[in-house]
């Protein structure tokens, strides 16, 4: 038998591709000579070792899995009921961002927690990804990754409904004037006045953006210090001071939709939105001209990795990027 012929037979045997006739031929060849058997073992060893040699670089699988999990969208149908507090239901119908039906509001602030002392505290953590939940009263909440929502009991007792938030969330409460829906953050109390809303709780400030409807925004330490915010407005509570500004860009709730939409917006705002959306610092170089900062960008990104978006912006603006300690910096060459 020629070299190549027996090598192929051995190979097909090792790869489980040999036909019965080929198996028999191999067997015959092996029995014919002790040297053949040694040769078989050598070939088998090369075959086996090459698999090991090729797979020699060790990647950190656990770290990679965690990174991937953070980027995964979890369909409602897969959010397990078992890991939710008993009274929570998974929201299984498609989320409709119909702004006509209700009003929407967004708040921000973070920090310490205060615990309700009433029994049966329900907690929902969005540790690894955004989570959508329906509260027992039918209100809907979409928690951004990192957010925690707490409430006591079934929200059915007492004269009001109160939940606590740390982090950022989008609320669509079922409106009931007899039992108003309240959200507490560390520094503020929010009350919906016939609306649905999104709340974000960050560091020393609380930020509320009303997409539709009306929300009462009060300082927790002094509830008489309050204002009523209407749709298209944003308010920041810092200490005991409220700062109100006009309508925000269209991307405040991008994290709930996965869509970033820019219509003729200045680059500096675009970069800020991208940075917020990906929770990754993206900045403009300190030396960049005002003109370049104000360059207009029109683009729409749906569920795209950050890398692709940065590249798209590089191509349209002619800017370059570098990475500095985890921060992406756009700069002019």
């Amino acid at each position: 038998m020629q070299d190549t012929d027996y090598i192929k037979l051995v190979l097909k045997h090792l790869d489980s591709e040999a036909t019965p006739a080929e198996q028999a031929a191999l067997q015959h060849w092996l029995e014919a000579d002790q040297q053949h058997r040694l040769e078989y073992q050598t070939l088998e060893r090369i075959w086996r070792d090459s698999g090991k040699v090729l797979n020699k670089h060790s990647f950190d699988v656990e770290a990679a899995l965690e990174k991937v999990e953070n980027r995964l969208a979890i369909p409602d149908a897969l959010v397990p009921r078992s890991s939710m507090p008993a009274r929570l239901q998974v929201w299984s119908f498609p989320w409709k961002w119909s702004l006509a039906a209700a009003s929407v509001l967004l708040v921000a602030g973070t920090a310490g927690w205060w615990y309700l002392t009433r029994p049966q505290l329900n907690e929902i953590h969005a540790d690894r990804a955004a989570v959508r939940v329906a509260l027992p009263d039918g209100s809907r909440v979409h928690l951004r990754q990192g957010a925690v929502l707490r409430y006591s009991g079934s929200l059915a007792d007492g004269n009001e409904r109160m939940v606590e938030l740390s982090g950022e969330a989008f609320f669509e409460p079922v409106h009931n004037p007899a039992r108003p829906f309240h959200i507490q953050t560390e520094h503020a109390i929010l009350q919906d006045i016939g609306t649905s809303f999104l709340v974000k709780d960050a560091a020393a400030t609380d930020e509320l953006t009303v997409i539709t409807g009306k929300v009462k925004f009060a300082e927790k330490a002094d509830p008489s210090n309050s204002l009523t915010l209407t749709e298209g407005h944003k308010a920041i509570l810092s200490g005991n001071r409220f700062t109100v500004s006009g309508a925000t860009g269209g991307n405040v709730i991008s994290w709930t939709t996965g869509i970033l939409d820019f219509k003729d917006e200045p680059l500096r705002d675009v970069v800020a939105d991208i940075s917020d959306f990906y929770q990754t610092p993206v900045v403009l170089d300190a030396g960049m001209s005002d003109k370049a900062r104000a360059a207009r960008v029109t683009a729409r990104f749906e569920h795209q990795p950050l890398k692709d978006i940065l590249e798209e912006i590089r191509l349209t603006t002619g800017l370059s990027t570098r990475k500095e300690k985890g921060t992406f910096v756009f700069f002019q060459e």
């Binding site: 995964l72 078992s82 890991s83 953590h125 969005a126 540790d127």
Partner: peptide
């Protein structure tokens, strides 16, 4: 916790 502990995952 709470990445869904479901069969597909």
């Amino acid at each position: 916790m709470p990445f869904p502990d479901t069969e597909p995952y």
